[in-house]
Deep mutational scan, measured.
Amino acid sequence: GIDPFTGEAIAKFNFNGDTQVEMSFRKGERITLLRQVDENWYEGRIPGTSRQGIFPITYVDVIKRPL
């Protein structure tokens, strides 16, 4: 089901994660935001896939912030 505490964002740019914990994505992908890790990073996942990880806040347009 849908978790009411998650947020939502759209990727503004392609992001290629450097490490296992970073999640790569392509511009235009819809991302579920799980939490804000710190002032620069979100943790999120791509709905319908097993992809999950952290990524820079500046790479996405936030539609709804996670609670």
Rank of each mutant, 00 (worst) to 15 (best):
K27Y: 06
P56R: 04
E29N: 02
E8W: 15
E22N: 06
Q36D: 03
I31A: 00
M23V: 05
I54Y: 09
V37Y: 08
T58E: 13
Y42H: 04
I2Q: 14
I54W: 07
L67T: 15
R30G: 04
R51N: 04
R35A: 09
F55A: 00
R35N: 07
R51Q: 04
G1I: 13
L34G: 04
P4W: 15
A9E: 00
T58P: 08
V62P: 05
F55K: 00
S50K: 12
G1Q: 12
E29H: 01
N40H: 13
G28M: 03
P47F: 09
G44A: 02
T49N: 03
Q52L: 06
V37A: 04
I57T: 09
I54T: 07
I2W: 13
G44N: 00
F15A: 00
G28F: 05
I63V: 11
K27F: 06
I46H: 02
R65P: 15
V60S: 01
F25V: 03
K12W: 04
P47V: 11
E8M: 12
E39L: 09
P47A: 11
P47Q: 11
P47E: 15
D38V: 05
T58A: 15
Y59A: 11
N40P: 03
D18P: 08
D61V: 14
P47M: 09
P66V: 05
T6W: 15
A11E: 01
I10M: 07
T58H: 13
L34V: 09
L33T: 02
G7Q: 10
V60L: 05
T6Y: 15
E29R: 02
G17I: 04
I57G: 09
P4F: 15
P56F: 02
V60N: 00
D18L: 15
T19W: 06
T32P: 00
E8Q: 10
P4T: 14
T32W: 09
E29Q: 05
F55P: 02
A11G: 08
D61N: 10
M23E: 00
K64M: 08
I57M: 10
E39W: 08
D38E: 07
I54P: 02
F15C: 03
G7E: 08
V60F: 02
P56K: 04
P66N: 04
S24P: 06
R26Y: 10
R30F: 13
Q52R: 11
E39Q: 09
K27Q: 10
K64C: 11
L34W: 06
P56W: 02
D61E: 13
L33I: 14
I46D: 00
I54S: 03
R35I: 06
S24D: 07
N40I: 14
V21N: 14
I63R: 06
A9T: 03
T49C: 03
V21K: 15
F55L: 06
W41M: 08
T58K: 13
K64E: 10
F5S: 12
N14D: 15
K64T: 10
V21A: 15
R26E: 13
K64F: 08
F13P: 00
T6N: 12
V37W: 08
G1S: 12
Y59Q: 06
G44D: 00
I2N: 15
R30S: 08
K12M: 10
V21H: 14
F55D: 00
P56N: 03
T6E: 13
I63T: 07
I54N: 06
I54D: 01
N16M: 11
G17L: 03
I54Q: 06
G28H: 05
I54L: 10
G48S: 06
L67Q: 15
I2K: 14
R45C: 13
F55Q: 00
K12S: 06
N16C: 12
N16H: 13
G1R: 04
D18S: 15
K12D: 02
T6K: 11
G17K: 04
S50L: 11
R51M: 05
P66S: 04
S50I: 10
Q36F: 07
R26Q: 13
T6D: 11
E8K: 08
D3S: 13
A11K: 00
V62F: 07
N40Q: 13
R30H: 14
V21I: 12
G7C: 12
Y42N: 01
V21F: 15
F5L: 12
G44F: 02
A11Y: 01
Y59S: 09
L67C: 14
E43N: 04
R35P: 01
Y42T: 03
Q36C: 08
R65E: 15
I46K: 02
L67I: 15
I2V: 13
I10N: 03
K12P: 00
E8P: 05
E39C: 11
Y59R: 06
R45T: 11
Q20M: 12
T58C: 14
E29T: 05
V37E: 03
P47K: 10
G17C: 05
W41G: 02
Y42F: 12
F13I: 09
T32Q: 11
I63L: 11
L33Y: 03
Q20F: 11
N14E: 09
G1P: 12
R30V: 11
Q36L: 10
P56C: 04
E8R: 07
Q36Y: 07
G1W: 10
F5Y: 13
R51T: 03
D61Q: 10
N16P: 06
G48D: 08
E22V: 05
Q36G: 04
I63N: 05
R45H: 11
R30I: 13
I54H: 06
G48P: 05
D61R: 11
L67F: 07
F55I: 08
G28D: 06
R35H: 08
V21G: 15
R30N: 06
D3W: 12
R51V: 05
G28T: 02
V37H: 07
R26C: 13
R35M: 07
Q52K: 10
Q20A: 15
P47I: 09
G44H: 01
F25W: 02
S50R: 10
W41S: 07
G7R: 09
G17R: 05
G7Y: 13
L33S: 03
V60Y: 01
V60M: 03
P56M: 04
Y59H: 12
G17D: 02
Q36P: 07
I46F: 04
D61F: 13
D38W: 07
F5A: 12
F15P: 00
I10K: 06
V37I: 13
K64S: 07
D3T: 12
R35F: 07
T19I: 06
F25P: 00
V37M: 08
I31T: 02
G1Y: 08
I63P: 05
N40S: 10
I57P: 04
F13M: 14
M23K: 00
I57W: 05
Q20L: 13
Q52A: 09
L34Y: 06
V21T: 11
I2C: 14
Y42M: 10
Y42D: 00
F25K: 01
L33Q: 03
I57C: 09
P47N: 10
G7D: 09
I31H: 00
T49L: 03
R45Q: 10
G48C: 09
F5P: 10
G44Q: 00
F15T: 01
V21W: 14
T49Y: 03
K27D: 04
F13V: 09
D3G: 12
E43D: 06
D61Y: 13
I57R: 08
I2F: 13
I31D: 00
G1D: 12
P47D: 15
